[in-house]
Amino acid sequence: MTTNVTSEVRASYAYKTATNRLGLWLFLLSDSFVFGGLLVSRFYLLGNTRPHLDQTLGLIVTAMLLVSSFFMNRAETAIAHGDEKTFLRGTLITLVLGVAFLLGVVGVEWRLAPFGPADDVVGAVFYMMTGMHAFHVLTGVIFLGIVYRNGRKGLYSAEKHWQVEAAAVYWHFVDVVWIFFYPALYLIGTVAG
């Protein structure tokens, strides 16, 4: 596929972006092994039981994260069409929803949970899974913050917005991970203890 590419083409933004894109997807492949490992650990240790958690809260944070992905997608499409205003608004909404998710999980759920990380293996699994996911959401939020700041400075255009694309893809990835984690923690099995 690349065997006849000249060095001028190689130096172009489009070629570099395609290279970056490949790198990003490989990184996500790699990262998904961490989450795979966490899921396997969860089923190995807890089997058909699950932690005792607040179902309403779980539903709310999940909904927020899913909706945020929609806005991120809108933001990315917008910048691809040169629509800076929609892009900025979409990014900001995503960012706010991301922060709200973090507050919901780390700020509220961690407090509400009737167990601590050191109590038993159920707690250990719950805090590890949500913690690792929250860490990724946090990096995503920081990434979005950078994109938002650079967007306001007008650094992106319809042709050149790799950073936006990367942030969006990463954000969708974090979202997809939660689509697996949410049922694993909130829905599957009977409540432990």
């Binding site: 190995y44 240790l45 050191a118 805090y127």
Partner: peptide, 16 residues
């Protein structure tokens, strides 16, 4: 943090 993944006393499993 005392998370008992591999601690039998907390229901953990060393084989994992």
């Amino acid at each position: 943090f005392g998370m008992g993944f591999f601690d039998p006393a907390k229901g953990g499993n060393v084989i994992l």
